[in-house]
């Protein structure tokens, strides 16, 4: 399903539809995350990926117009590069331990075992994801907040420059005379 939706995104020319299908894609991936037991990730993806991203996308489209230029349907050179990269990556997966088995190295690592066994009396939180995010890896979360703050400052700088420009031209005229 995810693959089909992603292919639709590639084929569509109308960017407004692309934004909507991207929202559907995000929701589908949230469903997939729930099936894989990652409920916290699923609701973040549903709220942030499907919600905020779509709003941002629509806001941009209202400013830049929503029709993509017509072009050749299939471009062979990028397609070749992509296929080669994909095949190399698939060759790489042959060494990955099979999906869903409890004996995989990732599950036996001391950190994971410690989080699952000790977190309930060390932090008093039944949800392990929350206790890791807020307690054991609190510095990570602080770093994440810094990244968001930086991005927000960047967006504000770019957008404020946009608004000032036309008004500066208006003001610049009388002062020049």
């Amino acid at each position: 399903m995810l693959v089909i939706t992603a292919l639709i995104v590639v084929r569509l020319e109308n960017l407004f539809t692309v934004a909507m299908v991207t929202g559907i894609y995000s929701l589908l991936s949230a469903v997939f995350f729930t099936l894989l037991d990652a409920v916290d990730v699923a609701f973040t993806e549903a709220a942030v990926g499907a919600g905020i991203s779509t709003v941002l996308m629509l806001g941009t489209l209202s400013l830049v117009g929503h029709q993509q230029k017509k072009r050749k349907t299939v471009q062979w050179f990028p397609l070749t590069i992509v296929t080669i990269t994909g095949l190399l990556l698939m060759y790489g997966t042959l060494d990955i331990p099979p999906f869903g088995e409890g004996g995989n190295p990732i599950h036996g690592h001391a950190t994971t075992v410690h989080y699952l066994e000790e977190s309930s009396h060390e932090t008093g939180m039944p949800n392990v994801v929350t206790s890791v995010l807020a307690s054991y890896r609190g510095y990570d979360t602080m770093g994440e907040t810094t990244v968001i703050f930086t991005a927000m400052v960047g967006v504000l700088l770019l957008m404020s420059g946009r608004k000032r420009k036309p008004s500066k031209d208006v003001e610049g005229d009388p002062s020049g005379r």
Partner: peptide, 11 residues
């Protein structure tokens, strides 16, 4: 399931 990848992906 392993909680550590979930935390990383939330970020």
């Amino acid at each position: 399931s392993n909680p550590l990848p979930h935390v990383l992906i939330l970020t």
